[in-house]
């Protein structure tokens, strides 16, 4: 498969979307609810018809091909298992449609049942399975006819948190083993980061950025991506912060917790030129660390604080060091390092 290219004009859900997926990759479409991720998936599958634009699979235009002949496996958000068929019949459905021989169907289904770890569940009905089991049946059913592409719509949305963790790993490994080109949709960035080789951030039916999870995190291409990925706080008047005078050329700025260092007052004396004074407003326990809300001049920042460090209390005056911020102006995005900090490190 060379890629899927689609563009739509004046289409509400997909606004001039261009997307290319390399063969064998596991791609996550990430975006807020209502951003048109599912629509894109359904267009690829042939369940929706684009107003304009081309969909190519393996270099072949498939726009006029009906959904059934595109060679696509689809895992629905609520799995859409056939409730009046046993697990076996569910998985066998695609093979029966293809008129495979009974022996071949039996062989393929039992192969898939061991792949998804559901040996012995063949005679059960969907209502007799747990959420995680249903998801695996849906997965087995989708890949049974050996599709070229596997599409998954919010594959983990309906599963409780603990099972979800396991399933993510399982899905990633299984897809890796099969080497099948896959696209999944999610609104959960942790999920996208953990499962996908490549993330496509979607907003308002538009591809904002495409890249590896690390890339998207480190080098957000648009203000939307910078805000959507990871936790971020808006910084008003960013140019007034020490070391970020360059921010005055930009309209907006945000900062992430991992670039904000909070210390007991006085502990940051080495960084006089760059450290700010702040007041702790809120402290919450996050399991492996503390999340500190600290107000510096009028801006409320979030920072992570190790449990090993001396305890802080609400209302305490602290030193705050901001190492890096993201600044935007229109569609321009840049990363600003704290200039004073750089000079400091040179001197030390």
């Amino acid at each position: 498969m060379r890629g899927i290219n689609k563009s739509f004009g004046n289409f509400k859900a997909s606004n001039d979307t261009n997307l290319c997926v390399e063969k064998g990759r596991l791609v996550g479409l990430l975006g807020p609810s209502g951003s048109g991720k599912t629509t894109i998936l359904r267009i690829i599958a042939g369940l929706e018809i684009p107003d304009s634009g081309d969909i190519m699979i393996n270099g072949k235009r498939v726009n006029d091909m009906n959904a059934g002949s595109r060679g696509i496996g689809f895992v629905f958000q609520n799995y859409a298992l056939f409730r009046y068929m046993s697990v076996f019949e569910n998985v066998a459905f695609g093979l029966r449609v293809k008129k495979e021989s009974e022996a071949a169907i039996k062989k393929r289904v039992s192969e898939l049942m061991s792949l998804v770890g559901l040996d012995g569940f063949e005679k059960r009905f969907p209502s007799q399975l747990s959420g995680g089991q249903r998801q695996r049946v849906a997965f087995a059913r989708a890949i049974a006819p050996n599709p070229q592409i596997l599409l998954l719509d919010e594959p983990f949305a309906a599963i409780d948190a603990k099972v979800r963790q396991e399933l993510r790993k399982w899905l990633r490994n299984t897809i890796g083993v099969l080497g099948i080109t896959s696209v999944f949709v999610t609104h959960d960035q942790d999920e996208a980061v953990e499962v996908a080789d490549e993330i496509v951030v979607i907003n308002a039916g538009h591809v904002e950025q495409k890249g590896s999870p690390v890339d998207i995190y480190k080098h957000p291409a648009t203000p939307f991506v910078a805000r959507f990925i990871g936790h971020s706080d808006a910084m008003e008047n960013a140019a007034s912060f020490k070391g970020f005078e360059a921010a005055r050329d930009f309209a907006e700025a945000i900062v992430r917790p991992e670039f904000v260092r909070v210390e007991k007052r006085g502990l940051l004396e080495d960084y006089v030129a760059s450290a700010e004074e702040g007041v702790v407003e809120d402290i919450s326990f996050r399991g492996d660390n503390m999340e500190i809300k600290v107000r510096v001049s009028r801006v409320l920042l979030t920072a992570n604080y190790s449990l090993e460090k001396p305890g802080l209390s609400v209302g305490e005056k602290v030193s705050v060091l901001i190492r890096r911020i993201y600044v935007f102006d229109g569609d321009r995005t840049e990363i600003l390092e704290n200039e004073n900090l750089r000079e400091n490190t040179v001197f030390i």
Partner: peptide, 8 residues
């Protein structure tokens, strides 16, 4: 839709 995607 699931059935249609499998070519039914």
């Amino acid at each position: 839709e699931a059935a249609a995607l499998m070519g039914a």
